[in-house]
Design a protein around this nucleic acid. Sequence first.
RNA 1: GGAGAAAUGGCAGAGUGGUCGAAUGCGGCAGUCUUGAAAACUGUUGAGGGUCACACCUCCGGGGGUUCGAAUCCCUCUUUCUCCGCCA
Length: 423
Amino acid sequence: MLQVPFIRENKEEVIKRLAKRNIDASEMIENVISADEERRSLQANLDNILADSNAISKEIGLLFKSGQVDKANELKAKTSELKETSKQLNDKLNQKVQELNDLLYKIPNVPNDIVPAGNSDTDNEEVFREGDIPQLSENALPHWELAKKYDIIDFELGNKITGAGFPVYKGKGARLQRALIAYFLDKNTEAGYTEYQLPHLVNEASGFGTGQLPDKEGQMYHVTEDNLYLIPTAEVPGTNIFRDVILNETDLPIGITGYTPCFRREAGSYGAHVRGLNRLHQFDKVEILRVEHPSKSYDALDNMVNHVKGILQELELPYRILRLCGGDLGFTSALTYDFEVFSTAQEKWLEISSVSNFETFQANRLKLRFKNSEGKNELAHTLNGSSLALPRVLAGILENNQTDNGIMIPKALIPYTGFEMID
RNA sequence: GGAGAAAUGGCAGAGUGGUCGAAUGCGGCAGUCUUGAAAACUGUUGAGGGUCACACCUCCGGGGGUUCGAAUCCCUCUUUCUCCGCCA
């Protein structure tokens, strides 16, 4: 959520930058500013009335103490009118605050200067590419065929137990999943991130804090009986660690990592996009997450990008990095880099990581602040990224490393899998 | 799931209707002293709104109510603790 004073003071700039998302925000921004003005004026009126009635109450107390009961009763009569007005004003104020918030919830984060303008993923800007795309033999298979051939992932069994998008991993497939999780967590903790195990269900306040609620409610599985949501990413429980927290400046930066399953309804997805491991309702992901001083957050973003690069280099996967254009940028993000691994048998790029700086957008909702050097409370910056999402990494390994004799496990993973080949 | 107790500032812990945003202790910060540190002493120290700055307003787990006036009384929800039951 953007801060109202920021909007007020940078009106033109905000509109200009939101235009990169193909949004004409001018009307919304005007509405925010005027709603806020009305809010402040209502608040001032109410405060004055409350001040009066506080003063009278105090006087009544004193009169009672000195035994002047008649005078006290006289004053009592005076307060009923004040009470009535203050009640009305209070209702109006609440309404106005709600109106203002509803407006603010609809405004996405302001893209960073270097975000390219654009409508869709075709306008994303490739900023880096590395790794050789292997020459596969003619009878190379896509990963879902490989999964069947080597009996390591059973999609039909998942259909039976739950439904589409809930695959069952077995044998070396299950072990490879576990190996990847352990490997990612080790790489992340080596880089200074503290490992966490987080809840897989979150309450409404948490969903709100990271921006999934109120708007993206349909993307999460909702346990209505207890009003809890299955997490779509570890970002939600992880970032909400810091909800309503005031840190010391010396606590920064903070880096945490955690493995969680992720649950996504993916309403509206269909066809080839959901083939095999490409898009699932339940998948595993290891996430990294940082809380940063505003002056350091973009260095931290670069640092996270380099960290993910290092992992992909070790896994020997061909990948590229995209700077997302305004149209493809997530609602809460100011700047996002997507990592895509090349799926050779499918001949397409698969997103395996998304690294973002949210600046104060989440912190504002979370009330995540730190006490700065002047002793003032200031919103911190939050960032997060996948390090990494498992299914598509697995797809990449299976497809790119297939040989006539089986699938080669990347060297870095062998200590974790305990085997060198799936055959 | 049943019975009972509780929820106050970073922490501990007073406060049961009026001047309480809240005693006191610890912790934090600043200063004095010291070569430096510790100790001691002095001061300071919650959050939000509002204002150029003050004033002023709101907040004692959440929500609602009683009252001229609520941290204090009532209702309700949530959470924690103790006992019982069940259980990985």
